Simulated scan of single mutants.
Amino acid sequence: MSRSGSRTTGRPTLAEVARLSGVSPITASRALRGVSTVAPELVEKVLAAAATLGYIANPAARALASGGSHSVVVLIPSLSNQLFIDTLEAIHEVMRPRGLEVLIGNYHYDVAEEENLIRNYLAYQPCGVLLTGFERSEASRQLLTASRVPCVHMMELGGDAEAVSVGFSQHQAGHAAARHLIDRGRRRLAFIAAQLDPRVMQRAQGFRQALAEAGLQAPELEILAPQPSSIGLGGELFSQLMAQSPQVDGIFFCNDDLAQGAVLQALRQGIEVPRQVAMVGFNDLPASAHMVPPLTSIRTPRAAVGRAAAQALLAMLDGKRVAAGQQDLGFELVVRQSS
């Protein structure tokens, strides 16, 4: 026979944790979820009771019982990109004090995989969803609309007029990179990109626009590779570009890891940076300031985006009116010795 208050599985229940710690089930639930309004001494008692009993919360059952859950779904295209790691950390910092669990879905830049994740996670009745960008399948859009779950879009601006988005203009960032190289006197400008997700292509459009405005269009100086971005690939693509177009004197890379690989490859090949070719990266990853020479890059507000998107979602969950539209957090051109 199972102990009193247990389910037929014999597993310890929240009611047992509450009894052992001398608090109400609601207080026990809040303490276990990390809600900041619970007194520290009560949290300590509840955690000790849960540890004694070996209690593990069942989020699916909790969602079913309450008609919802204490979970927020965050969908990102990559866990290997520092950009999204910083964003996730900031989201956790905002959600944790409210006792909200963050469920992470990595869809590897695949809209079909994202659709499957959306379908599966919505079954848990999350209280909100944070999405990366606006590029997804029509089925995904219909699922999200039908669920009526509050959503906030991150990393880019635009999309549906009724959407809430937090990010910066990828197009303007690409334009700024080109404009910087032009202002430095560079005239044979190349663009090297990998992954080729929608945000990369928005940067490409901004870069091309700046070149067109200056009368410097050179589509033959673009290398667009579908592979995931990496330091190794950056070195390979740089060598390919310089072999076919040695007159290039300025390059914008869609991500810092590509640019870092190019800086290292230039050193191996005896190509002087920036005297022979100037380089600009994107995202200003931590290692970029320590390259030889230090890398000029577009610094993106990745942590600020996660924080602001999470705060906007919390406001929606609190019933506050969050006007649809764009929250533009901007970007910064960090000029170093590579340009």
Rank of each mutant, 00 (worst) to 15 (best):
L42M: 12
F168H: 04
Q276N: 14
V129M: 15
G133S: 07
L64F: 13
L211F: 13
L224E: 07
G261L: 02
H171C: 02
V73I: 10
A177H: 08
V164M: 10
F253S: 01
V152P: 01
L75S: 13
S297L: 05
L285E: 12
P25R: 12
Q217I: 10
Q244N: 11
N116K: 15
Y109E: 15
L143E: 05
L237S: 06
P59W: 03
L258A: 04
P228V: 04
Q142L: 12
V263W: 08
Q311E: 14
E44V: 06
Q172P: 00
L189D: 03
A178F: 07
N120F: 09
V277S: 09
R275S: 14
L314I: 14
L20T: 06
L53T: 04
P97K: 11
E113L: 12
V38C: 10
Q170E: 11
R188T: 01
M291Y: 12
P286E: 09
G34I: 01
V273H: 00
V273Q: 00
M279F: 13
H92D: 14
A324C: 10
P198A: 14
F282Y: 15
P301K: 08
I192E: 01
P150D: 09
F282L: 04
T13A: 11
V292I: 13
G270I: 05
A323R: 14
S36A: 15
L216A: 02
M154K: 10
S339H: 04
A310I: 00
A225D: 15
V334T: 12
V23D: 09
A303M: 06
L122Y: 02
I251Y: 00
G215C: 05
G5L: 05
N116C: 05
P25D: 05
K320V: 03
R208Q: 11
R302M: 10
V335F: 00
G185E: 04
R33F: 04
N106R: 10
E236T: 13
S2L: 14
V72D: 00
L224V: 07
R184T: 02
Q209S: 05
V152L: 02
A287F: 15
V72W: 02
E138D: 15
R186L: 09
G330L: 08
P12R: 06
